[in-house]
Design a protein around this nucleic acid. Structure first.
Length: 928
DNA sequence: ACCCTCACG
DNA sequence: GACGTACGTGAGGGTA
């Protein structure tokens, strides 16, 4: 009779690990199932052990139930600083139980006890009965249970662990591990331990003195050191910690040992479960687990099962463009679509006849399902002219009809590089791409700030695949002789387009693994990926601009500019190009003899606002005129003229393009045109905002976060005085003025405001001195006072810089990384520049994360309350702009406010409220 | 292609 | 002791 062998599976521990290590999959019902999938493969692996020498004869999955256990009664801080489970993990907990049931395995949980205690109790009982035990977990606390006859098994690393593992990892025997853990403490579970003692020191003490109590008792006679003092001072904390890490092994077993006998795994419930979640590839590709088949073969003849394939990292074949196919027949198209279904994923790229995706025509679609397995489906070659001669290609309508089910199939992942473009193009043809991954966004979430990693495809291919893509220029030429993609011959078009899809798929494979392993899953899944289709919608929507209003302004500005020009030339005594800083510098500082030195390496005179304002203050009339001239020229060329040219001919609206990878901090950026820098600060400039209007019957609504970055700074640096001021709804700059100067008036409030911003940007006394027109010493005093009044700020600054230097990156509250390679530069000002950016990045980036989450939730929140005509049009970093029927304003305002104010939740709980200010009117200008 | 300047948060 | 003088963007005009 072979010996009984009980496997105890630490299900709760596993699911967290699977969540962080595995790609964030969703099933065909749109539910997140990455962790469930990982959990399922683990059970599968265990099922395959059945019948082997070291395999289980008995097995139980142990789960945590509820969060309050006897340890909380012992120490109310236990696990107190643990963040709530990620929102896409929560719905997976019940599915874990489904998965366990699908394998027909017993599942044990008990209120008041942690899974660890249940495992300890079963281990004790089984050992007493003379059984072998294997604990399936990688938890260090459970390693205390290792003893002869009891080992651990880490399925992810495929590693069995005994006493020697504990010895290499912690330097002690398993039975001494509890003492080591007690000294070390555990920041995740909030076990206090002894400050300053980590794994190394703890192990040294325990192996030297044998156990915790002996070490504590010996402390007074140890050599004097910080560690020794701490050992004495915190002895009670260590004793409490010892009790917290001890496993409770004497509970009544919820189910008797003998009930845990493994009998085999009926195939049917397992199959149903796998099919429900679309894990059927697991069954189909790898064969059922041996145990399941053993049961199934009795009923039906099943083909020889093979064990699930271990993930092998095979070298991909180099890119070979000769293997790409031009798809021009029904049969070929069907074959590619079937291949995509079989693979469960497909890289997609669309080719169009112009860059503007609102007006462009579809020219072709490329697909890739594996390395070099890529094709191009031409549909619009030969151009839009109905009568032009065209190459042989499938009709557009047919291709769209066949692609639609694939592109909308929940069980096939669509992969694209900068998908918002393709989403818009295909949405115009009635296709909603879902689900999707975007490699440009993945790249950004991994490598923002890494100077070597460009996120565009050509650069990404060079960096990550060591491959040079065919450039668009090579195919279409440049400048005047540039041709449209519709005119490119099919063979050349296929090489170019299919390569894009092929490269995208290869990049995706790399990034998918990295996202999971490098902690980018949170920000990718919870912030950026959902945003892609939202941004696509906003760009497609566009905003109405009153062309006549702009044209009137242009005319006004032209007249103003001309008048000023005459005056300036008169004052200068000669005509010159006012826009030329070179000529202007010569006039001001050489001919007219004003003071104001040369600047920097170029040796040119600086003529920027600060200089001109100084001259003006000295009484130079020309300086004021030049400032006015510059303002009007800027407004005319950058706004009133340029915006008119940007009004789309087909839609009569302006469609900006947002870059999701534009700003290193995680902010969006806006181009063609940039709608994030429309004037507002001066009255003249503000008129331009009034030209952004709503359709008749509609209004423009603008919703702003008020002081979001300062609020986040107060939260992140933990500044009680600032937090309190925000909680009380005070004027924050006035409150700062009160703290710093003891009185509030226009002057002190203004200075306080400057200092508040200086803090967000990484202050230097020189910089502050310049801004406030005080001496560096006075500025230094002011900074010191700020740190004194707002403790936490200086700690935040030093901490952030230190961490950035250590790890190379900073992180937002949502885990967005920004890399700072120059933080180790030997050139001082380069390094200091990186330090200032590092101070700012977590704050600016968290603010960006929050508004992005608000944007992703806005559509569903509005729709849920029946508001289908509210359109989100623009994002300006802390502001969202909507167009909506006048009658919806009240209801929409409440929803918008709620969504924006609560956008951090539940992932991040802020200790300050987020304020939202909302206004509306016939134009953007009027909405403020 | 680069610099300067200036519009925004 | 000199250095250079706040974070993050994009666009237009002048110059080389």
């Amino acid at each position: 009779m072979p010996q009984n062998h009980l496997y105890l599976v630490d299900g709760s521990g596993y699911i967290f690990r699977a969540y962080h290590q595995l790609p964030p999959l969703t099933n065909k019902h749109g539910q997140p199932v990455g962790a469930v999938y990982g959990y399922t493969t683990m059970l599968w692996k265990l099922a395959d052990e059945l019948g082997k020498a070291e395999g289980p004869t008995h097995l139980a999955v142990i789960l945590d139930k509820g969060s309050h256990t006897f340890r909380n009664d012992m120490y109310d801080q236990y696990k107190a600083n643990r963040p709530p489970a990620p929102e896409d993990l929560v719905p997976q907990f019940p599915m874990i139980r489904d998965a366990t049931r699908a394998f027909s395995l017993p599942c044990i949980e008990e209120a008041g006890f942690e899974a660890d205690d249940i495992i300890a109790s079963y281990t004790k009982a089984a050992v007493a009965a003379g059984w072998h035990v294997t604990i399936v977990s990688s938890d260090k606390d459970l390693m205390q249970l290792i003893q002869p006859g009891v080992d651990m098994y880490d399925t992810m690393k495929n590693e069995r662990r005994g006493a020697d593992y504990v010895m290499t990892k912690f330097g002690v025997q398993p039975e001494q591990l509890g003492d080591v853990l007690a000294l070390m403490g555990d920041s995740v579970d909030n076990v206090p331990g002894i400050p300053g003692i980590g794994p190394k020191t703890a192990a040294k003490l325990i192996s030297e003195y044998g156990n915790l109590e002996a070490a504590l008792e010996a402390a007074p006679s140890m050599k004097k050191s910080k560690m020794q003092e701490n050992l004495i001072a915190h002895a009670d904390m260590a004793r409490l910690s010892r009790r917290l890490v001890a496993l409770h092994d004497a509970m009544d077993l919820p189910e008797p040992l003998d009930d845990l006998t493994l009998k085999g795994i009926p195939l049917e419930p397992l199959q149903a479960f796998l099919e429900h979640h679309g894990f059927k590839s697991l069954l189909a590709r790898a064969g059922a687990p041996a145990a399941a088949v053993a049961v199934a073969t009795a009923a039906a003849a099943v083909t020889q099962a093979t064990p699930p394939a271990a993930p092998v990292h095979e070298e991909e074949p180099p890119i070979d463009r000769s293997l790409y196919e031009t798809v021009v027949t029904d049969e070929a198209l069907d074959r590619w679509i079937a291949a995509a279904h079989a693979e469960g994923l497909v890289a997609v790229d669309t080719e169009t006849d112009m860059l503007d995706c609102v007006s462009c025509a579809l020219v072709g679609v490329s697909l890739a399902v594996g390395p070099n397995a890529a094709c191009y489906i031409p549909v619009g070659h030969g151009g839009r002219d109905m009568f032009a001669e065209k190459p042989d290609q499938l009709p557009l309508a047919l291709v769209l009809a066949k692609l639609k089910p694939l592109l909308e199939d929940d069980s096939v992942l669509k992969i694209g590089q900068n998908l918002k473009y393709d989403i818009t193009v295909l949405r115009r043809h009635g296709i909603e791409i879902t689900p999707y991954d975007d490699t440009i966004v993945m790249s950004f979430d991994l490598d923002a700030g890494q100077s070597l990693a460009g996120h565009g495809m050509d650069e990404a291919a060079r960096v990550h695949l060591n491959h040079t893509c065919i450039s668009f220029k090579d195919v279409c030429g440049t400048g005047k002789s540039q041709i449209s993609f519709a005119e490119v011959p099919l063979d050349k078009a296929t090489e170019y387009a299919a390569e894009d899809a092929d490269v995208t798929l290869r990049l995706w494979k790399l990034f998918k693994t990295r996202v999971a392993h490098e902690g980018a899953t949170r920000v990718y899944e919870l912030v950026d990926r959902p945003l892609v289709s939202v941004i696509a919608k906003m760009e497609h929507e566009g905003i109405k601009v009153d062309r006549e209003a702009l044209s009137r302004l242009s005319a006004e500005f032209t007249a103003g500019i001309a008048a000023l020009e005459t005056e300036i030339h008169g004052l200068a005594g000669q005509p010159f190009a006012i826009g030329s800083t070179q000529q202007l510098g010569a006039i001001l500082f050489e001919k007219m003899g004003y003071k104001g030195g040369k600047k920097g390496k170029s040796g040119a005179y600086s003529t920027d606002v600060t200089i001109l304002e100084q001259l003006k203050a000295q009484g130079a009339e020309i300086a004021g005129k030049i400032l006015d001239w510059r303002q009007l020229s800027k407004l005319k060329s950058t706004y009133t003229d340029a915006l008119q040219a940007q009004i789309n001919r087909d839609t009569s609206r302006v469609h900006t393009s947002y870059s999701l990878s534009g700003a290193q901090t995680g902010r969006l950026s806006s181009t063609d045109p940039n709608l994030q820098n429309i004037p507002i600060r001066t009255e003249v400039g503000r008129q331009i905002r009034h030209a952004f209007v709503a359709e008749p019957g509609n209004v423009i609504l603008a919703a702003d976060y008020s002081q979001i970055e300062l609020r986040l700074a107060a939260h992140m640096a933990d500044v009680p005085a600032l937090k309190e001021a925000f909680a009380n709804g005070e004027d924050i700059h006035a409150a700062t003025a009160q703290q710093l100067f003891g009185e509030v008036n226009r002057d002190t409030r203004g200075r306080a405001k400057t200092i508040n911003f200086a803090i967000l940007y990484g202050i230097s006394r020189w910089g502050l001195a310049g801004r406030l027109e005080i001496s560096a010493d006075e500025a230094q005093d002011m900074i010191s006072r700020y740190y004194e009044r707002f403790p936490g700020i200086s700690l935040y600054i030093t901490d952030t810089i230190e961490k950035a230097r250590e790890r190379g990156y900073t992180e937002t509250l949502f885990g967005r990384k920004t890399w700072f390679p120059r933080i180790k530069a030997s050139v001082q000002h380069e390094r200091q520049g990186a330090e200032r950016a590092a101070i700012n990045a977590p704050i600016q980036g968290t603010s960006a994360d929050i508004i992005k989450r608000a944007m992703a939730r806005m559509g569903p929140a509005l729709a849920a309350e029946g508001l289908h005509d509210v359109k989100m049009l623009l994002q300006v970093h802390d502001e969202l702009v909507f167009e909506l029927p006048e009658g919806d304003v009240e209801q929409a305002s409440a929803i918008i406010r709620r969504v924006m104010a609560g956008a951090a939740e539940p992932i991040v709980k802020l200790s300050v409220p987020l304020g939202v200010e909302i206004g509306h009117g016939p134009s953007w200008g009027a909405a403020h």
